Amino acid sequence: MKTKINGKTYNTETAKLLGSYRVGSSFDSISYLSEDLYITRKKEFFIYYRGGMLSIYAKYNNDGFPRDGFGFKVLTPDEAFDWLKKHNRKDAIENYFSEKIK
């Protein structure tokens, strides 16, 4: 997947995947949630997310009914560090945030 945000291109095929988080067992689930954290060649972080109609990533039709949602969210380095810490991605923390390890 690829998108432009504030004039910058974010592409899941060319960025490096640092970690994934999933809730639910299938994309068919109405409460399914998926987040993939990436880093670009220019050291910028972003999440590609997907979610069922009852997830935090649901989108709403004009009639007000929810549907599955997906998209991109750009993260600051601090937000990316917090995401990696929350999801216990020690390998990525050591590789990209070694200065923050106590």
Results as ranks from 00 to 15, higher is better:
38 Y>E: 10
38 Y>W: 12
38 Y>V: 11
38 Y>R: 06
38 Y>T: 11
39 I>E: 13
39 I>D: 07
39 I>G: 10
40 T>Q: 10
40 T>N: 11
41 R>G: 15
41 R>I: 01
41 R>W: 00
42 K>E: 15
42 K>M: 09
43 K>T: 12
43 K>R: 15
43 K>A: 14
44 E>R: 15
44 E>T: 13
44 E>M: 12
45 F>T: 00
45 F>G: 00
45 F>I: 02
45 F>Q: 00
46 F>N: 12
47 I>R: 03
48 Y>W: 15
48 Y>N: 12
48 Y>T: 03
48 Y>C: 08
49 Y>F: 15
49 Y>W: 14
49 Y>C: 06
49 Y>N: 08
50 R>C: 13
50 R>I: 09
51 G>D: 14
51 G>K: 07
52 G>F: 01
52 G>L: 01
54 L>E: 15
54 L>C: 08
54 L>Q: 15
54 L>R: 13
55 S>H: 06
55 S>I: 05
55 S>E: 03
55 S>D: 06
55 S>R: 01
56 I>M: 12
56 I>Y: 05
57 Y>L: 01
58 A>N: 10
58 A>T: 02
58 A>Q: 14
59 K>T: 10
59 K>A: 08
60 Y>H: 13
60 Y>R: 13
61 N>T: 11
62 N>Y: 09
62 N>T: 06
62 N>M: 07
63 D>E: 05
64 G>T: 08
64 G>H: 08
64 G>D: 04
64 G>R: 10
64 G>K: 10
65 F>E: 14
65 F>Y: 11
65 F>P: 00
65 F>M: 12
66 P>I: 06
66 P>F: 05
67 R>W: 01
67 R>S: 08
67 R>E: 13
68 D>K: 08
68 D>A: 13
68 D>F: 05
68 D>R: 09
69 G>E: 01
69 G>Y: 00
69 G>N: 01
69 G>L: 01
69 G>D: 03
69 G>C: 02
69 G>P: 00
70 F>H: 13
70 F>D: 15
70 F>A: 13
70 F>S: 15
71 G>T: 09
71 G>R: 07
72 F>T: 05
72 F>H: 11
72 F>N: 03
72 F>V: 07
73 K>R: 14
73 K>I: 05
74 V>F: 04
75 L>G: 03
75 L>C: 08
75 L>N: 04
